[in-house]
Simulated scan of single mutants.
Amino acid sequence: MWKKFSFVSVIFILMMIALTACGNSESSTNDDSANNGANSLGEEQVELATDTYLSNIGATNVVKLILEEAGYSVTITQTDVGIEFSGLADGSSDASVGLWLPTTHKSYWEKYKDSLEKISMVTEKVELGLTVPSYMEEIDSIEDLANNKNNIGEKLDWTITGISPGAGEMKLTKGEVMPAYGLDENWELQSSSGPTMAAALTRAIDKKEPIVVTLWTPHWTFNKFDLKILKDPKNKYGDPDNVYSASRKGFKEDSPLAYKIIKAFSLTKKQNQDIMLNIQSGMSNEEAAKKFLENNPEFKENVLNKAKSSNK
């Protein structure tokens, strides 16, 4: 009788041990699944959006290469900033690393912010303003344009060379800056594009002629030329912006690791200007991004490691 009871007891104990082990294994598996889920690729097709600012184009192509290293298939849509924002809001694209806030893209952010998620800061303290070559020694302030100092208006045919009409800086210049200084009475803000503006600036500098352009940092022209942003005593351009990344609602859940990579991504103004200068010198956008990563081998690893170790 005792032997029979002992045998049954041993069997019962062994079954309990096995069940406990299975439970622990299942718990461990669940924990691993949770961790892997936080860093899973999720939806592997990622659509990045950028406007026509060369600084944003360069940054976007660096992010593209890092996302592809992680296993994503990435396409870039380059368009006007207004379409960029609306595309993020309606889900046509997934994310951007080129939102200038709180000033430059304020009107777009206010319109679409309920459909967007701000992710993280990409570049700190970027400036924008009316800019001239430093050899224009007599022109130091926007007020000098308003006062037509040294007949600068006649010399420039009362024209400020701008970029694409939908750009945040153009809207700010035309809607806030020019009326505040009285420039809207005589001066014209001429729309063009970023490359066209830069070409006009280059031609003027080659001939040492006067020119006033809408410009910003980071921009490759500050690496190549001696330029000065005109003083803005009324602070109508506002304090320097920061550049942020943002995404459509739901992107974090749909592509968890891509979201974390973008959150971990940042560039200094100098790094961005180096990329921009290579693009301007003839490299394709992707070639310039590859060169940057080759010259900074730790950059990609730092972003990926930070993303994969993040709990959010």
Rank of each mutant, 00 (worst) to 15 (best):
G166R: 07
G42R: 10
T159K: 15
S40W: 03
V177F: 04
E298M: 09
K208C: 02
A70V: 04
Y181D: 04
N295P: 00
P133Y: 01
N61E: 11
K236I: 09
V177I: 14
N150L: 07
D274C: 00
S281L: 04
W109D: 03
R248V: 03
C22S: 12
T79N: 10
N311T: 15
S284K: 10
E185K: 12
I83H: 07
L19I: 11
N151C: 03
L101Q: 08
I57M: 11
Y72N: 05
I13V: 15
Y112W: 15
F85C: 05
L215F: 05
A49H: 02
K171C: 00
V63I: 03
Q280R: 13
V81S: 14
K174Y: 11
I83T: 14
N296W: 05
A34Q: 13
G91V: 03
K118D: 09
S266H: 14
L88H: 05
K64G: 00
L189M: 11
Y237K: 06
D90N: 15
T202I: 02
E169R: 13
L14Q: 06
S96V: 08
E154R: 11
S192A: 15
D241T: 04
G162H: 06
K174V: 03
M121K: 15
M178F: 06
I229K: 07
G250M: 02
M178C: 02
P210T: 00
I279F: 07
L215P: 05
P240R: 09
T214I: 13
S40D: 07
L67S: 01
S73E: 13
E176D: 14
Y181Q: 02
D51S: 15
K269C: 01
E287G: 07
S92Y: 13
W220A: 13
C22W: 11
G23K: 08
S9L: 15
H105F: 11
S266E: 08
P240D: 06
K300P: 00
K228N: 10
V213W: 07
A258W: 07
W2I: 15
A198F: 01
S255N: 05
F12H: 04
E294S: 14
S266R: 10
T60L: 05
Y135K: 07
D51R: 02
M276F: 03
A34S: 14
P179V: 03
V126F: 06
K300Y: 04
K234M: 11
Y244K: 03
E137F: 02
G182Y: 04
T77K: 12
S40R: 12
T52M: 13
N186H: 14
V212W: 07
M136L: 12
M170A: 03
K269V: 08
M15C: 13
A199L: 10
I142Q: 00
Y259A: 07
I152E: 03
D90R: 14
K149T: 15
N305R: 09
G194L: 08
L67D: 03
K171A: 14
T214R: 10
D184P: 01
K252V: 00
K234T: 01
S25R: 13
V126E: 01
S6L: 15
D90V: 08
N61G: 00
I163F: 06
T50M: 10
T221A: 14
